[in-house]
Simulated assay, not measured.
Amino acid sequence: MTDQPNKVYFVGAGPGDAELITVKGARLLRECNVVVYAGSLVDWELVRHYAPAARAYDSAGMDLVQTTEILVQAIADGEKVVRLHTGDPSIYGAIQEQMEELDKAGVPYEVVPGVTSAFAAAATLKQELTLPEVSQTVIITRIAGRTPVPDREKLSEVARIGATMVIYLSVSMVETVVKELLAGAYTLATPVAVVARASWPDELVISGTLSDIADKVKEAGIKKQALILVGDVLAARREGMTAKSQLYDPNFTHGSRKGIVT
């Protein structure tokens, strides 16, 4: 089955490292005639490498009307089009409103997932985000800023769960983040890591606890393009694991292996 050429492909570029784009995403870039990319977050070198012959439009200074016009016109001209977003377009990607406009224009589209920065940050930390008897839930969220969040999703509310949390788009308000987290299930001793520009050559990691992370972030001058990871799982590399997964326990039987009988 071949892809229909006359549709818009929303492609996740990955977190920064050009090699972290998917095979399908890279292929679509190589084949496209037009690429509209989020230049404030997507590395131009990625566009240049995979789509050197395409007409490239940086959407950083554009509004929804302008990007839609480019996409619709390119499809009308019979061209192959990629709308390139950072990370995975389903996470804070603002693609729903773009797809709505394409629906109005009768333009077909497809979404190609990518590696979101939360998982690039976890890879940098060499940290599993779900650990037995520690946390089996990962919450991806943000603090309210210029973009509001529903009252039921205030950081202090979701912090009551005490799960592993990955906080996007909030490092510039890190002191408020700490205050909100402490209003939930976390304590001053809860481990925290801030990963700035995950997977980029200038990636920076700041580790600490809720008692000192705000000062460390301020001292490092981190103001944007950073994730805040919070939770007891982050203590595992320092303190060891409290429990191991049953998946590889020699005494555990599952569909692919019979456990040792003692």
Rank of each mutant, 00 (worst) to 15 (best):
T164I: 01
A123L: 07
A26I: 03
S59F: 13
I75R: 13
S211V: 00
A123V: 07
S156C: 08
A236I: 01
V115I: 15
A51R: 02
V205L: 10
T141M: 03
V261D: 00
E45H: 07
E69V: 06
F119N: 00
V107F: 06
Q73N: 14
A56D: 03
R152V: 03
L125H: 09
T187F: 05
D212M: 03
I206E: 10
Q4T: 10
S170R: 07
R197D: 08
E133R: 04
S90W: 02
V11N: 12
S170G: 05
V115W: 11
R257W: 15
E100F: 00
A123F: 11
S40G: 06
G259D: 13
Y57F: 15
W44E: 12
E45G: 12
T130W: 11
A38G: 07
A13E: 03
M99D: 06
N251I: 00
V158M: 05
M173N: 14
V195F: 15
L234Y: 11
R257G: 07
C32T: 15
K24T: 12
S59D: 12
P5C: 10
T116P: 00
K179A: 04
G78E: 02
T67R: 02
R27K: 09
T116H: 14
P108R: 13
L71C: 14
T130F: 09
A18W: 03
A226Y: 06
E97Y: 02
D17C: 13
S170L: 10
A236S: 09
P15N: 13
V81A: 05
R48Y: 02
S245E: 13
R197F: 00
D151A: 15
L210N: 13
K154L: 13
S256G: 06
L64N: 03
K154I: 04
P132S: 12
T209D: 10
R55T: 15
Q66T: 14
A123H: 09
G87W: 11
A159P: 09
Y37I: 09
L204F: 12
G16H: 12
L29Y: 01
E19F: 00
V35K: 12
T253Q: 07
A121G: 09
A236M: 06
T176H: 06
P191D: 04
V81Q: 04
G61D: 07
A185W: 12
V23T: 05
W44C: 08
T209C: 07
P89H: 00
V158P: 02
V174A: 13
D215C: 00
Y9W: 12
E128G: 07
A60I: 06
V81K: 08
G145P: 04
E180V: 12
I70F: 00
S199P: 10
L204W: 05
A183P: 00
E97K: 01
I228P: 01
G184V: 05
V178E: 13
V261W: 02
L129V: 06
S211E: 15
E180Y: 05
T187S: 15
V138A: 01
T187G: 13
I140L: 15
E157R: 10
N33S: 15
L210H: 10
L41C: 03
R55Y: 01
V72N: 13
Y37V: 08
